[in-house]
Amino acid sequence: KNAAKIVNEALNQGITLFVSDNKLKYKTNRDSIPSELLEEWKQHKQELIDFLTQLES
C-alpha cells in the first residue's frame, strides 16, 4: 500500500493524519483506532511523514 491510499482509508474512517514536529499524528472523533490501522501506520511511518509533509508544503 502506498501513503496516499493509507491516508485516504484513514479519512474514510473519520481519521485525519498529519505531521507535527516531524512526528505522525492523528485527529479523530472516534473512541478508538483499530489496531490494524495503527500497525499499518507504524509500518509505513516514514513514507506517511514524507507524503504528508510534501502535501503541506
Results as ranks from 00 to 15, higher is better:
K27S: 10
T28K: 03
W41P: 00
A10H: 01
V7E: 01
P34T: 05
R30M: 14
E47D: 09
W41C: 04
V19M: 05
S20R: 07
F51V: 02
L52N: 00
H44T: 03
N2L: 12
D21S: 05
S57P: 13
K23R: 08
K1V: 13
K23G: 06
Q13P: 00
N2R: 11
L55T: 10
L17A: 01
L38I: 13
W41H: 02
F18H: 06
E47S: 09
T53N: 11
D31I: 12
D31W: 04
K27C: 15
A3I: 10
T28S: 09
L24Q: 00
K45A: 15
I6W: 03
A4G: 07
I15S: 01
L55Y: 12
N8A: 15
N8P: 01
A4M: 09
N12A: 15
D21K: 06
T16E: 14
N12G: 11
S32K: 10
L55W: 10
G14L: 03
A10L: 03
Q13I: 09
I6Q: 02
E40H: 07
S35I: 14
E56Y: 08
L24M: 03
Y26V: 05
N8M: 15
I15R: 00
Q13E: 08
E40Q: 11
T28C: 06
S35G: 11
E9N: 08
I49A: 02
I49V: 07
F51L: 05
Q43G: 06
N12T: 12
A3N: 02
S20N: 08
V19G: 01
N8T: 13
E40L: 14
W41A: 02
H44F: 11
P34G: 04
K45V: 15
T53V: 12
L38T: 05
T53E: 06
E36C: 06
Q46S: 08
Q54E: 11
N2T: 15
K1I: 09
D50Q: 10
S57K: 14
I49F: 05
P34E: 05
V19Y: 05
L38K: 06
V19L: 07
I15T: 01
P34C: 04
E56A: 14
K45N: 14
Q46T: 09
I15Y: 09
I15L: 03
I33C: 02
Q54L: 11
A4V: 06
Q46P: 04
T28Q: 03
P34H: 04
K23E: 15
A3S: 05
K25H: 14
D31P: 14
D21E: 12
V7A: 04
Q13V: 07
S57Y: 04
N22T: 06
N29I: 09
L17N: 01
L24G: 00
Q43H: 10
